[in-house]
C-alpha cells in the first residue's frame, strides 16, 4: 500500500519532465544543403526535356527555385 503514493509521484515527475522538455513545433525553413540537392535533381529533370529551348528554360527555372530555397534557408524568419 505504501508504494502507491511513490508511483503517483513518479508519474507526476515524469509528466513534469515531459512538459518541460516539450518545445514549440517550428515550421522549418529548408536546410542549405537541401537546396543544392534540389538543384541537382532539377537539372536532371531539365536535361530530360525535349528541345534546346525547353532545356534552357528548365535550367533557368531550376536556378530560380534554388534562389528561393536559399533565401528561405538563410533569411526566412
Amino acid at each position: 500500500m505504501t508504494r502507491k503514493p511513490i508511483t503517483k509521484k513518479l508519474v507526476l515527475v515524469a509528466m513534469a519532465a515531459f512538459v518541460l522538455s516539450a518545445k514549440p513545433v517550428w515550421a522549418q525553413p529548408p536546410a542549405q544543403d537541401q537546396c543544392m540537392t534540389n538543384l541537382m535533381s532539377c537539372y536532371y529533370w531539365a536535361a530530360a526535356q525535349s528541345g534546346f529551348w525547353s532545356i534552357w528554360a528548365g535550367g533557368i527555372d531550376c536556378e530560380l527555385a534554388m534562389a528561393d530555397c536559399i533565401r528561405r534557408a538563410l533569411i526566412g524568419r
Binding site: Q32, C35, M36, L39, M66, A67, I70, R71, L74, I75
Partner: peptide, 12 residues
C-alpha cells in the same frame, strides 16, 4: 560557384 554567389549577394 552559383550557390555561393547567391548566398554572398543576398540582401536584407
Amino acid at each position: 560557384s552559383p550557390d555561393q554567389q547567391l548566398r554572398a549577394n543576398l540582401v536584407s
